[in-house]
Amino acid sequence: MTPLSYDPDNTGLVVVDPYNDFISEGGKIWPRIKDVAEANNCVPHMLEVLTTARAAKFRVFFAMHHRFREGDYENWKYLAPIQRAAWHRRSFEYGTWGGEFRAEFVPAPGEIVASEHWCSSGFANTDLDLELKRHGIQRIIVIGLVAHTCIEATVRFAAELGYDVTVVRDAVADYSDEMMHAALEINMPNYASAIVTTHDIVAALAV
């Protein structure tokens, strides 16, 4: 494999959905993701990548899922199954602990929080592409949740928009090993230029 190399002038870290509901004990979705996330140390790896990127002066962007508010979806004619599930579970409910950033992932001053995505892609109907372009970003490194939904959808959309994409395989998680395999071994290799480990990306960013 070609040695990994990233320029902080044109590379940004995109952190997807670090909500308490996803990655904290007591979160609504954590029980579904816990086994896979703990097996690959997803949350500690996410934090390690984020901390390294900050120390190396890479720009950080957050792509966050829409937080449930009372009345959401009620007058929509059609809902995707994933949206219907979020509605019924009140996932990431606005004004609740579950809808807050996990403490270690609260954006630092100057970091960009894109407008919330309503389905899976961090780009669809948000200002993430605009913010990346305004900051001169052409390459992105993606970490967060969930591998076969929001991560994969964001990676696919990024490739369509012309970004070079790296996914950190042990800084994402999913509901099962089968879903992780499908996302990381079958689907995303078509769109991500590199799918690497936390060890690899930390070494590359810290140079």
Rank of each mutant, 00 (worst) to 15 (best):
M1H: 09
P3C: 05
S5E: 14
S5D: 09
N10H: 12
T11R: 14
L13H: 08
D17M: 06
N20F: 15
F22H: 07
I23R: 00
S24G: 02
S24M: 06
S24N: 04
G27M: 10
K28A: 15
K28C: 10
W30P: 08
W30E: 11
R32C: 01
I33Y: 12
I33F: 10
D35M: 04
D35H: 09
E38C: 03
A39S: 14
N40F: 06
N41T: 07
N41K: 01
C42R: 02
C42Y: 08
H45N: 15
M46R: 03
M46Q: 13
E48F: 01
V49I: 03
A53N: 03
K57Q: 08
R59G: 09
R59K: 15
V60S: 10
V60D: 08
V60P: 06
F61A: 13
M64I: 12
R67I: 02
R67M: 12
F68W: 14
E70P: 02
E70R: 00
E70M: 04
G71C: 00
G71W: 05
E74Y: 07
E74N: 12
Y78P: 00
P81R: 02
Q83W: 08
R84F: 08
R84N: 02
A85E: 12
W87R: 14
W87D: 10
R90F: 13
F92L: 13
F92N: 06
E93Q: 15
T96M: 13
F101M: 00
R102V: 15
R102P: 06
E104V: 03
V106R: 04
P109F: 04
E111M: 05
V113D: 03
V113M: 06
A114D: 12
W118V: 00
S120F: 11
S121I: 03
G122W: 00
A124E: 11
T126C: 10
T126D: 11
T126P: 00
T126R: 06
D129G: 07
E131S: 07
K133E: 08
R134C: 03
G136L: 15
I141M: 08
I141E: 04
I141H: 07
A147Q: 07
A147L: 03
T149M: 13
C150T: 07
C150N: 09
E152D: 14
T154W: 05
V155Q: 00
R156K: 10
A159Q: 10
A159G: 13
L161E: 12
G162V: 04
Y163M: 02
V167Q: 12
V168H: 07
A171D: 07
V172P: 07
D174R: 00
E178Q: 09
M179W: 12
M180P: 01
M180C: 00
E185F: 08
E185D: 12
P189R: 13
N190M: 09
A192L: 03
I195G: 10
V196M: 12
T198H: 02
V202I: 06
V202N: 00
